[in-house]
């Protein structure tokens, strides 16, 4: 301060120079209105990388632990990188889970209801978006209400109903509600389609009807092809959600009986300890139950979706952009 206010011209000029450089430095680090500074960028990248690491931590931990042999587990000097790539854990876990069989069943459990879900939700979303009829607003209200309502409250009578119909323990207990627009998370999908079809210009439909297309033809020829981004989104999410659903699957499709036919990989992980112990007592597997085997089982159950995610990453990541949830 005193230097800046000094009367001597030479020192004043000097301070101006130094102020300039300081200013430059400040600008360089903190940036200006027009461009971000290096300091800001370092901060942002640092934070992103840190958080990214935290995100990946469980997966890295899982992979590294699942590759450890018994000696590595006991050796305190081995923390992250196993001494050798030990694949026996995976073999044991796969054997205990009956990986390929369960994998096939998982695909069936996720794919078939997803198909019904997509078709029906598309129709319903189209109906809500393009037609104006009495009680539409109330119905939309019910739709949102059915999303907010926890499924537990309708679970018990539904189970009783299915039991009476004799479809507990079969895939029908997932297909049936999906056919009637009440599959897993169906309200979200209906809303996605609703949003999407509202953005399709009405002129297009009118042009079709002038050219002589009926309502159904308009739907199949114009609405469905234009909704392909939304369809991809819904297919992916529905598949993933059905795949990861353990609570309802074990209740309806597996049927909670001891020797059920239907099961999926996620449920296999849930019951892993028990099934592994029974298998181990028979002498089917080489090692006893330890965290490596459990992590290997978890990794196996994640694997299919993980591969799917890597292959279809673009569709997943852009799905929300394109589904139009956030409006235009």
């Amino acid at each position: 301060m005193s230097a800046g206010t000094s009367t001597k011209p030479t020192t004043a000029a000097g301070t101006i120079k130094s102020v300039l450089t300081k200013d430059k430095l400040r600008r360089f680090v903190f940036g200006t209105r027009e461009r971000t500074g290096v300091g800001q960028q370092i901060l942002v990248y640092g934070l992103l990388i840190c958080i990214g690491f935290v995100y990946l931590y469980p997966i890295l931990y899982m992979i590294s632990t699942s590759l450890m042999s018994m000696e590595d587990l006991l050796d305190t000097s081995v923390k992250w990188i196993p001494g050798s790539v030990y694949l026996q854990n995976y073999r044991d876990a796969a054997k205990s889970m009956e990986f390929w069989k369960t994998f096939g069943k998982s695909i069936a459990i996720s794919a078939v209801p997803t198909l019904c879900n997509v078709v029906i939700c598309m129709m319903v979303g189209y109906g809500f978006a393009k037609y104006d009829f009495k009680g539409r607003k109330i119905m939309m209200g019910i739709l949102i209400f059915s999303y907010i309502l926890p499924s537990q409250v309708t679970m018990i009578p539904t189970y009783v109903l299915y039991n009476k119909m004799g479809i507990v323990g079969t895939l029908w207990s997932f297909i049936l509600p999906a056919v009637f627009g009440h599959g897993l998370n169906a309200p979200i999908f209906i809303l996605i389609f609703y949003q999407f079809f509202r953005q399709v210009p009405k002129v297009l439909m009118e042009a079709a009807s002038i050219d002589g297309a009926g309502h159904l033809k308009t739907f199949f020829r114009i609405a469905v092809p234009s909704a392909i981004p939304a369809i991809i989104t819904v297919v992916l999410f529905s598949f993933v959600w059905y795949w990861n659903e353990a609570y309802l699957t074990s209740l309806y499709v597996q049927g909670l009986s001891g020797d059920a036919f239907w099961t999926n990989l996620v449920i296999a992980v849930k019951d892993f300890d028990m099934s592994f112990n029974t298998k181990a007592s028979v002498g089917d597997t080489a090692t006893s139950l330890n965290e490596s085997v459990r992590m290997a089982a978890t990794a196996l159950s994640i694997m299919p979706l993980f591969v799917m995610y890597l292959v279809l990453q673009r569709h997943f990541v852009e799905s929300i952009d394109r589904s139009g949830i956030t409006g235009e």
């Binding site: 319903v124 409250v153 509600p177």
Partner: peptide
């Protein structure tokens, strides 16, 4: 047009009765 709208929404409406209202009432009774 309105009739067509109902037609498109019909599966869901049946579902509302079968998988929402009926179980809701039933569990309220239970």
């Amino acid at each position: 047009e309105a009739r067509m709208g109902y037609l498109f929404v019909a599966p869901w409406l049946i579902g509302v009765v079968a998988f929402l209202l009926y179980p809701l009432g039933q569990s309220f009774r239970y």
